[in-house]
Nucleic acid binder design. Structure first.
Ligand SMILES: [Mn+2]
Length: 691
DNA sequence: ATCTAGTGGTCGG
DNA sequence: ACCACTAGAT
């Protein structure tokens, strides 16, 4: 809920997406549910032998049960707060991408690199509690499409991801991201790649590999999702006539409309398909029970009194957290200009309070060992995060920031890896014969790029393509197209580490819930989707690696990476922090992706409704107000709020950044039809407070 | 020297 | 899920 509040603070309506049932395809890779269940049992047995039987067993068991309940709990809170959400019939990844395609959300907030394979257009990763994140635009990833190869690029990317190892299919021995990249580049089609692999016997390819490969691909393409508009199950991508879904059990079995609706609403367990029963007041009850004995029992028995006090203390804190993102205009009064506070340490923001989840870590042993390795593709994303250094390359930033050029100064010590990573793909490319032709010079790394681009494009090397792209390209595009932005991010999920819970059996590893934000249909705001996945036992797939690298490439190209600082946005934040000292520095220029999204939404709302600002008080006096609010949540000080005007006038960094308060929409986020933004809407903070 | 595979940690009082 | 790091194979 902390994240939900944060999004709202930025004027972004979050749309949470929860994971549903496990996919048969996934089962293959990881091990079937049954196997898992068996494994769990074995583990339990081992623990038993070891000596702590009951404990081990208990934990395991808990893990199993908890998941559905927790998700339900969160859902109940979302309902109260009128936050849109949906429980996917199967994977949240596919559901998120579907929502994005339908324009129901403007971006996806998640750490899962698979989203790009599914075809996510705008991904916000590495988002922290304050909303700082890295934005990855799919377009930047493969610009090749323009060349009339539409579709192909996506296919290649998907093929590479599958070859490198994904959730649905393990890679052939010793084939990782780099190798997969080379293979696809060179041979183009999966069929050829496989033939070549078999040809030179270096790797041994299972007999069924091609078939499995195709199944994995079909799963990425045609997995079932729930359409909130139609209120029914649909395919992420509608299969063509040549595809017979009845012969593809691996994409997940069909789900009846009525059941799907109940699952989507969170009323039915997506795995067991049984109604979820909510125990009466779970959370509170526990507390009260705990306390009750305390009072009733003579203290003498054992516990030191201090323990009780400790508990008592906590409560207040818990109450505070929830409000951290709330903006209380009333309190903010403009009057007290407060001394500037430096945001550096943001002490208590976090926590948020989800009191409920005890978070147990069942870290144990068992699941870990089974874990799949991380997907190589995720690599691509990985670097982005800390590679601030990359920023120098990407000036892009969109709207902003010229300021930023020098990364180094503030930037931290560049990591050694950074360069390597960036060039990772390049190197590969260079090695290829073709490439060498064009570029005899070994690495041109960044300097030489622009001119060559066309050649490169034809070549198809992704990396080069990225480079070749004009930096401002994205800008042009973006401006005009405000139609949609999506943010997605993952929410701190309720779940804890894995649980193996399935009723049936094995707990697959956790299936986690994911959140998505959705753009409110109303002119007002869009929502980001959040995916909440906790740490799962499942390992990262190779895809992740791709992300890292690509991200680099992307960066230069157009994608803006906003990570901590590199990106304009993020950088902005950091910059803001460092410069916060000087007020003048106004970092207005830099907006984080979330801020931009919020601003856009706001803008949209305004134009649509034409109403004078919906949110009353803030826009003008905001600045002072903001500071005033500090006491409540200092953390945000550094970040200027999104302001339309700011956005409009990006160039002028002049310091005034007022912050606007986000529009919190109160009441309806979801409806599409929208509500016209009602004339006077003020933030109703009280709602969010836990009072 | 490059890449793949495996392992541990992740938060927050 | 990711990420950082390390060891092993090429
Ligand atoms: Mn995934």
């Amino acid at each position: 809920m902390h994240r939900v509040r944060m999004f709202r603070y930025y004027g972004v309506t979050p749309y949470l997406v929860f994971d549903g049932d496990y996919l048969p395809s996934k089962a293959k890779t990881e091990s079937s549910r049954e196997k898992r269940r068996e494994e769990s049992k074995k583990i339990g047995v081992e623990l038993l032998r070891a000596g702590k039987p009951s404990q081990a067993f208990a934990e395991l068991q808990k893990a199993i049960d908890v998941t559905p309940e927790m998700a339900r709990h969160l859902i109940d809170e979302l309902k109260k707060a009128e936050v849109p959400y949906v429980v996917a019939p199967y994977e949240a990844d596919a559901q998120l991408v579907y929502l994005e395609r339908q324009g129901l959300i403007s971006a996806i907030v998640s750490e899962d690199s698979d989203l790009l394979v599914f075809g996510a257009k705008r991904l916000l990763t590495k988002m922290d509690q304050h909303g700082q994140c890295v934005e990855i635009n799919r377009r930047d990833f493969c610009a090749v499409r323009e060349v009339s190869l539409t579709g192909w690029t996506d296919n290649e990317f998907r093929h590479m991801a599958i070859f490198s190892g994904c959730d649905y299919l393990d890679s052939v021995n010793n084939i990782g991201l780099k190798t997969a990249y080379r293979l696809i580049r060179k041979h183009k089609t999966p069929e050829r790649v496989i033939k070549m692999l078999r040809f030179d016997g270096k790797h041994q390819v299972p007999e069924s590999y091609l078939e499995d490969f195709k199944q994995a691909e079909l799963t990425f393409l045609h997995q079932r999702v729930f359409c909130p508009t139609k209120q029914d199950i649909v395919f992420l991508t509608e299969p063509g006539p040549a595809v017979n879904v009845d012969k593809m059990p691996f994409i997940g079995a069909p789900v009846e409309t009525e059941l799907a609706r109940c699952i989507a609403a969170g009323d039915f367990n997506p795995i067991t398909k049984q109604r979820i029963v909510v125990p009466p007041s779970p959370g509170k009850r526990r507390i009260s029970q705990a306390l009750a004995p305390a009072s009733g029992v003579p203290r003498s028995l054992g516990k030191p009194i201090t323990e009780y006090f400790a508990d008592a203390r906590r409560i207040p804190l818990g109450e505070m957290d929830p409000n951290c993102f709330n903006v209380d205009n009333n309190n903010v009064a403009e009057e007290a200009p407060r001394p500037v506070v430096f945001p550096l340490p943001r002490p208590y923001l976090d926590g948020a309070g989800e009191p409920t989840v005890p978070t147990r870590r069942y870290t144990s042993n068992s699941a870990r060992t089974l874990r799949r390795q991380t997907e190589p593709v995720s690599r691509l994303l990985a670097d982005m995060g800390h590679s601030e250094s990359s920023q120098h390359r990407r000036q892009t930033a969109g709207p902003v920031i010229q300021v930023y050029q020098d990364p180094t100064s503030s930037a931290r010590p560049p990591k050694k890896a950074r360069l390597c990573e960036e060039s990772a793909f390049e190197e590969v490319v260079n090695k290829t014969p073709e490439r060498s032709k064009f570029f005899s010079s070994a690495k041109q790394k960044r300097p030489a790029k622009k001119k060559v681009d066309q050649n490169l494009m034809s070549d198809d090397s992704i990396d080069e393509v990225f480079r070749s792209l004009p930096e401002f390209a994205w800008r042009a595009e973006k401006a005009p197209k405000r139609s949609e932005e999506i943010t997605i991010f993952e929410s701190p999920s309720p779940k804890k580490s894995n649980e193996e819970s399935l009723p049936a059996a094995e707990g697959q590893d956790g299936h986690v819930d994911e959140l998505v934000e959705v753009p409110a249909s109303s002119p007002i705001q869009q929502t980001p989707a959040v995916e909440s996945r906790d740490h799962n036992p499942t390992p990262m797939t190779p895809l992740g690696e791709l992300l890292k690298e690509f991200s680099y490439g992307t960066t230069r190209a157009r994608t803006r990476i906003v990570h901590g600082l590199p990106t304009p946005a993020s950088s902005a934040q950091q910059a803001a922090i460092s410069k916060s000292i000087c007020p003048a520095a106004s970092q207005t220029a830099l907006l984080t992706p979330l801020q931009r999204i919020g601003a856009r939404a706001l803008h949209r709302a305004k134009s649509a409704s034409r109403l004078p600002t919906p949110r009353t008080p803030m826009s003008s006096g905001s600045r002072s107000g903001h500071f005033n609010s500090l006491p409540v949540n200092p953390a945000f000080v550094p970040l200027p709020k999104v302001d339309l005007e700011e956005v409009a006038a990006l160039n002028k960094p002049v310091g005034s950044e007022d912050q606007i308060i986000p529009e919190s929409d109160d009441e309806n986020n979801e409806d599409e039809g929208g509500r016209a933004p009602g004339p006077g809407r003020r933030l109703n903070l009280s709602r969010f407070r836990y009072a």
